[in-house]
Nucleic acid binder design. Structure first.
Length: 954
RNA sequence: GCCCCGGUAGCCCAACGGCAGAGGCAGCGGUCUCAAACACCGUCCAGUGUGGGUUCGAAUCCCACCCGGGGCACCA
C-alpha cells in the first residue's frame, strides 16, 4: 500500500501529525503504559489485591470481549471493532470513577492449528503460540488498555487444569429434582444408603450388587457416558454437538456431511437445566433477538402425553393441544417408530416396507423440506381415541420425526395445517371441533350463518386459534362453549389424568450436550476407566492431565461421505499413556485413560472467571474476588443475577458458547462455588465490518484489491465480476490488515475510524478511502495545540470567549451521555464540531484544550497522552476525572422559535428562554412573515411547545 | 412460512412526535505548489423504501406491503 500520507518532501513541517509521528507517539506510550503497569487492575484481596487502590478507583466494572480464537492469518480490521468499543468504554469508565477490569485471553485449542499440524507435522502448540504472539502484537499496537497480568490461554496447563477440575465437579454432581439444583453425587449415595431416597427399582441399596449400584450412580451424573445417537462427522473424524450441525445437516466447521450414529460418548446433562436456562433469561440485559434464539433452541413446549390403545399396546403421543383431542381422527407414526412392525397388517406390509425404505434413503434436508407434498401409508391397524372411543386409522409418514416428542402424533386435521393437508390428500375425516370466528369464515367465502359453515369440506385450510369448541363432549368431559384454549387444555388434562389416559407434560427440543471429540488439540478428560469399564475422575492432586506428546496429531481420516467409518482418537494410539497404574483409594490398580478430548467450547465456558484471579493455584477463583467482580448487584435491580457488567461480541454465539457457558455457570453456582447465577448480566451484540467482495463468472471470489471499477462495472483481470458485501475475511478475499492502517495512519486514526462509522451494534462496510477523514480531524486537533514547526505547545492561558465556552460545555454534556450509551459515533461528531470551532480561533485557550484532550482520551489515547504531556502534566491521564459540563452554559438567555403556519415553517422569532406561552404566541402572531403567511386570516388554533416551536392553524 | 434487525444526500451515518443534518467520505470551487500529492478554506447535494392511518405537526407512533441482513422451520 502506498503511504501517500508520508512526508515525501522536506516541506512537510517536522511536527505535523503524520503517520510517522503517530507511530512514534503510539509506540512510546505503549511502552510507557507497559513499564508503569498503567492498566493493572487491583483485586479487593489475594495475589493481585490492593484493597485501598481498588476502593480509590471507585465502583467495580467488569468489561469483557468474547474470547478470540487466534487464527493463523492474524487480525483483520473487522476483528477489533468490538475490542476498540470495549476499550473506549472501559477507558471512559476509568475516568468517571470506576475500578475497571478489562483484559483479553485466547481460546487457543481448536481444529485449525491441529489441521495445520496434520499437514505440516508442526506441533499445534508451536502453531498456536505463534498465532497468539501475532495477535498480542497486533492488539498491543492498537493501544488497548488491558491488564496484561490477567491474560490467559486455554491451552496453558495451568488453565486447563481448572477446566478439568470443573469437569470433575460436573461429573461428581447430580440434579436433585426436588430442589432443581445440582448437588454433590456423594449426597445422592448417602440418601440411597440411608433409605431417604428410594432406589430406582425400589430394592434397598445394600441389596444391589456393586456394579449395578455404580451404574445407578453414573446414570445420575451431570456428565455421563452414553450409548446414544450422535452426530458422526467422518470428514472431521470426530463427533460433534447438535449445536454444531447446520440446518442442512452439515458440520458448521468444514461443511462436511454429518450422520446419525449410535456411539458411546460423553454427554453433559444440559437438559436438566432447560427450564432455568429459559426462565433466567428474564434476569438478563440481553437483546430480544438473542433471548428468542435461546428460547427457540431450548424449545420448551407444554402439553400432554396422551395414550391411544392399539394392537401393539398404548401409543403415546405428545401434543400441545390436548383440548383438540375430540378432533383426532387418525394417528401418524414416524416410519422408524418401533410399533410399526406390529401394527402393519399383511395387506399393507408391502406398502409400508416400501415407504420405510424410501424415507430412510432420504437425507435430513429432503425430509424437512416443508414445501414438499405430504406422503404416507396406512399401516392397516386402528387405535382408540381415548375421548371418543372411536377407532381411528394409524398411518406412517415422514413428516413425523422420531427425534421429537414420542415419534408419534395424533392428527387433528381441522386444527393443524400439516394434518389438514395429509387428511385432504388421503381422504380422511376432518370434523370441525371449533367454530371459527365469522371474520375468518367470511374471508374464505363461507357464510357464517349457514349451518354448513362447520362442514370442513368448504374450508381451504385448517383453523388454528382460539374459538368456541363444538362437538367436544363425552360422558365425563364437556368443552362445548368454552372459548379459550387454556381452559380447554386444563380441563382435558384433568380428565386424562383422572382416567389414566394421559398426563400434562413438558417437552424440549434441547438435547444433552455431546461433549467428547476424537481429536488431539483439546483438553484431555481427567478420567480413567477401571477394569469393569466404570469411569472415575482423577483426584485434584493429579491434575492437570497434560496432553501427551506425540507426532501423530491426526484422527484417522475418512472419506467425508463414509457414514459407516468409526472414530479413532489420536490419543488411542499412545498405549504407554493410556494404560496407567493408580491408587484411587482401594490400592494400586490398572486403569485405562479416556482418550477423548473436550470440545473447543469447554475452555470458553468459564474463562471470564479466570480473568478475575488468574494466578490462583488453590481454587479456580477466590470466592471473595468472584463476589467483588461478578456478584449480584441488587442496588441496580432487585433480581440482578450477577455476572459480567458488559459483554460484547457477535451474534454468532447465540446458542453455542452462550448456552454452554450459562449451563456450566449454573452448575458451579449450585455447588456453591459462585455467588452469581449467570455469567453475563449484560450482553451487547456488535455489528460486523463488511467489505465489498467480488465474484467472477464461475462464482469464485477474486482478490478484492485487484478489482477495477469502470463506468459502474467491475473488472478483475479485464473480466467482468459482480460485487456483493460480506463479512470481511479470508474466504471472501477482502480482508484488510490493521498493520496496513498502522503504517498509513496510526492506531489512533484506525480506532477513531472504526468508532465513527456507525453505532456499535450496526454492521457497516469498510472503506479504506474514508479513513482519511478521521486522520484529518486528528491533524487539526494536534495543530490546534502544537506548533508544527517546533513541536511546542501553542495553548494560551487567556480565557475562552463565551461562545466557545458554551459550545465546549454542550459538547461535554453530549459526549458523556453518548459514551456511556456506547454511541461513540455521535460523541466523535460532537468532538469534531468543537474542534472545528476551535480551529477558527487565533489560539487555543487552556480551559478549552484540557477538557478537549481529556474527552478524546478514551478514543485516541496515544495522542491524548502526548498532548496532555505537552500541556504540562507529568502523569498518565488514564485515571484523570472526565470533564463535567457546567449547567450554566447549557441554557441560553433567548431561544429562536420556528413559527409554522399549518405545519410549514414561515417565520422565526427570538424570545426570552423563560417567556411564558402567551408571550411567545403574541410575538409569533406579530411577526411580519407570519402575518404575510396567514394572509390576515385569524388563527383557528395556536400551539406553543415551550422550548421547541410555534404552530399556527388557520 | 414464522420471528428479529434495518431502509434518511452518490456513500457511511445524525436527528426527546416539533426548522430533515451533527460528523465523515466522495464531488465541485479556491489557497499553497513550477506542477502535483499532502494540508487548508469554501461549497453543492435528499424530503426520509411504498401506500394508508393517528396528530395542529410524522424520518420518528399504528396498519399493510416492498427491499436488504440475520435466525428458526413439517417441533406435534
Amino acid at each position: 500500500m502506498s503511504a501517500n500520507t508520508e512526508p515525501t518532501t522536506t516541506d512537510t513541517p517536522p511536527f505535523r501529525y503524520t503517520s510517522a509521528l503517530a507511530q512514534d507517539i503510539e509506540l512510546r506510550w505503549q511502552d510507557w503504559w507497559a513499564e508503569h503497569g498503567t492498566f493493572e487492575t487491583p483485586n479487593p484481596s489475594g495475589p493481585l489485591g490492593d484493597p485501598e487502590l481498588a476502593a480509590a478507583r471507585g465502583d467495580k466494572l467488569f468489561v469483557l470481549d468474547m474470547f478470540p480464537y487466534p487464527s493463523g492469518t492474524g487480525l483483520h480490521v473487522g476483528h477489533p471493532l468490538g475490542f476498540i468499543g470495549t476499550d473506549v468504554y472501559a477507558r471512559f469508565k476509568r475516568m468517571t470513577g470506576h475500578n475497571v477490569l478489562h483484559t483479553m485471553g485466547f481460546d487457543a485449542f481448536g481444529l485449525p492449528a491441529e489441521q495445520f499440524a496434520v499437514e505440516t507435522g508442526q506441533h499445534p502448540r508451536i502453531t498456536t503460540e505463534q498465532n497468539v504472539a501475532t495477535y498480542r502484537r497486533q492488539l498491543r499496537r492498537l493501544g488497548l488498555a488491558h491488564d496484561p497480568r490477567r491474560s490467559i490461554s486455554t491451552t496453558d496447563p495451568h488453565y486447563y487444569r481448572w477446566t478439568q477440575w470443573i469437569f470433575s465437579q460436573i461429573f461428581n454432581a447430580w440434579l436433585d429434582p426436588e430442589s432443581g439444583t445440582a448437588r454433590p453425587i456423594s449426597e445422592l449415595v448417602a440418601e440411597f444408603e440411608s433409605g431417604a431416597r428410594p432406589t430406582p427399582d425400589g430394592r434397598p441399596w445394600a441389596m444391589i450388587p456393586a456394579d449395578e449400584r455404580q451404574q445407578v450412580i453414573d446414570d445420575h451424573r451431570l456428565a455421563y457416558v452414553s450409548d446414544a445417537p450422535v452426530n458422526w462427522c467422518p470428514g472431521l473424524g470426530t463427533v460433534v454437538a447438535n449445536e454444531e450441525v447446520t440446518a442442512d445437516g452439515r458440520s458448521d466447521r468444514g461443511n462436511f456431511p454429518v450422520f446419525k450414529r449410535n456411539m458411546r460418548q460423553w454427554m453433559m446433562r444440559i437438559t436438566a437445566y432447560a427450564d432455568r436456562l429459559i426462565d433466567d433469561l428474564e434476569l438478563l440485559d440481553w437483546t430480544d433477538a438473542i433471548k428468542t434464539m435461546q428460547r427457540n433452541w431450548i424449545g420448551r413446549s407444554t402439553g400432554a402425553n396422551v395414550h391411544f390403545g392399539s394392537p401393539a399396546g398404548d401409543i403415546t403421543v405428545f401434543t400441545t393441544r390436548p383440548d383438540t383431542l375430540f378432533g383426532a381422527t387418525f394417528m401418524v407414526l414416524a416410519p422408524e417408530h418401533p410399533f410399526v412392525d406390529v401394527l402393519t397388517t399383511a395387506e399393507q406390509a408391502h406398502a409400508v416396507a416400501d415407504y420405510r425404505r424410501q424415507s430412510s434413503a432420504k437425507n435430513e434436508i429432503d425430509r424437512t423440506d416443508d414445501t414438499r407434498e405430504k406422503t404416507g401409508v396406512f399401516t392397516g391397524s386402528f387405535a382408540v381415541n381415548p375421548l371418543t372411543g372411536t377407532q381411528i386409522p394409524v398411518w406412517i409418514a415422514d413428516y413425523v420425526l422420531m427425534g421429537y416428542g414420542t415419534g408419534a402424533i395424533m392428527a387433528v386435521p381441522c386444527g393443524d395445517q400439516r394434518d389438514f393437508e395429509f387428511a385432504r390428500k388421503f381422504g380422511l375425516d376432518i370434523p370441525a371441533i371449533q367454530r371459527p370466528p365469522a371474520a375468518w369464515l367470511e374471508d374464505h367465502g363461507i357464510d357464517p350463518d349457514d349451518p354448513a359453515a362447520l362442514d370442513t369440506a368448504a374450508w381451504p385450510t385448517s383453523y388454528v386459534g382460539d374459538a368456541p369448541y363444538v362437538n367436544s363432549a363425552n360422558d365425563g368431559l364437556d368443552l362445548n362453549g368454552i372459548t379459550n384454549k387454556a381452559d380447554g387444555i386444563a380441563k382435558t388434562n384433568v380428565w386424562l389424568e383422572a382416567n389414566g389416559k394421559g398426563e400434562a407434560t413438558i417437552t424440549y427440543k434441547l438435547r444433552d450436550w455431546l461433549f467428547s471429540r476424537q481429536r488431539y488439540w483439546g483438553e484431555p478428560f481427567p478420567v480413567v476407566y477401571d477394569s469393569n469399564g466404570f469411569p472415575h475422575t482423577l483426584p485434584d492432586d493429579l491434575l492437570p492431565v497434560e496432553l501427551p506428546e506425540t507426532d501423530s496429531f491426526s484422527p484417522r481420516t475418512f472419506d467425508a461421505d463414509d457414514e459407516f467409518s468409526n472414530p479413532e482418537s489420536p490419543l488411542d494410539r499412545l498405549v504407554d499413556w493410556v494404560e496407567v497404574e493408580l491408587d484411587l483409594g482401594d490400592g494400586p490398580q490398572k486403569y485405562r485413560r479416556d482418550t477423548n478430548v473436550m470440545p473447543q467450547w469447554a475452555g470458553s465456558c468459564w474463562y471470564q472467571l479466570r480473568y478475575l484471579d488468574p494466578t490462583n493455584d488453590v481454587a479456580f477463583v477466590d470466592p471473595a474476588v468472584e463476589a467483588y467482580w461478578t456478584g449480584p448487584r441488587p442496588e441496580l435491580r432487585p433480581d440482578h443475577p450477577g455476572g459480567v457488567d458488559l459483554y460484547v461480541g457477535g451474534v454468532e454465539h447465540a446458542v453455542l458458547h452462550l448456552l454452554y457457558a450459562r449451563f456450566w455457570h449454573k452448575v458451579l453456582y449450585d455447588l456453591g462455588h459462585l455467588s452469581s447465577k449467570e455469567p453475563y448480566a449484560r450482553l451487547f451484540n456488535q455489528g460486523y465490518i463488511l467489505a465489498a467482495a467480488y465474484k467472477d463468472e464461475r462464482e469464485v471470489y477474486v482478490d478484492a484489491f485487484s478489482v477495477e471499477q469502470r463506468d459502474g462495472e467491475y473488472f478483475y483481470d479485464e473480466r467482468p465480476v459482480t460485487r456483493e458485501y460480506g463479512k470481511m475475511g479470508k474466504s471472501l478475499k477482502n480482508a484488510v490488515s490493521p498493520d496496513e492502517m498502522y503504517d498509513e495512519y496510526g492506531a489512533d486514526t484506525l480506532r477513531l475510524y472504526e468508532m465513527a462509522t456507525g453505532p456499535m451494534d450496526a454492521s457497516r462496510p469498510w472503506e479504506t478511502r474514508d479513513v482519511v477523514g478521521m486522520y484529518r480531524f486528528l491533524q487539526r486537533l494536534w495543530r490546534n495545540m502544537v506548533d508544527e514547526e517546533t513541536g511546542d505547545c501553542t495553548v494560551v492561558d487567556t480565557a475562552a470567549d463565551a461562545g466557545t465556552l458554551k459550545l465546549m460545555h454542550r459538547t461535554i454534556d453530549v459526549v458523556r451521555t453518548e459514551m456511556d450509551a456506547l454511541r461513540f459515533n455521535t460523541a466523535i461528531a460532537k468532538l469534531i464540531e468543537l474542534n472545528n470551532a476551535v480551529t477558527k480561533l487565533e489560539a487555543t485557550p487552556r480551559e478549552i484544550a484540557e477538557p478537549m484532550v481529556l474527552m478524546t482520551a478514551p478514543l485516541v489515547p496515544h495522542m491524548a497522552e502526548e498532548l496532555w504531556r505537552k500541556l504540562g502534566h507529568s502523569d498518565t491521564l488514564t485515571y484523570h476525572d472526565f470533564p463535567v459540563a457546567d449547567p450554566n452554559h447549557l441554557v441560553d438567555d433567548t431561544i429562536e422559535y420556528p413559527v409554522q403556519v399549518n405545519g410549514k415553517v414561515r417565520g422565526r422569532i427570538i424570545v426570552a428562554t423563560d417567556a411564558d406561552p402567551a408571550t411567545i404566541e403574541a410575538v409569533a402572531l406579530a411577526d411580519d412573515k407570519v402575518i404575510a403567511a396567514t394572509d390576515g386570516k385569524s388563527p383557528k388554533k395556536v400551539i406553543v411547545v415551550p422550548g421547541r416551536m410555534v404552530n399556527i392553524v388557520v
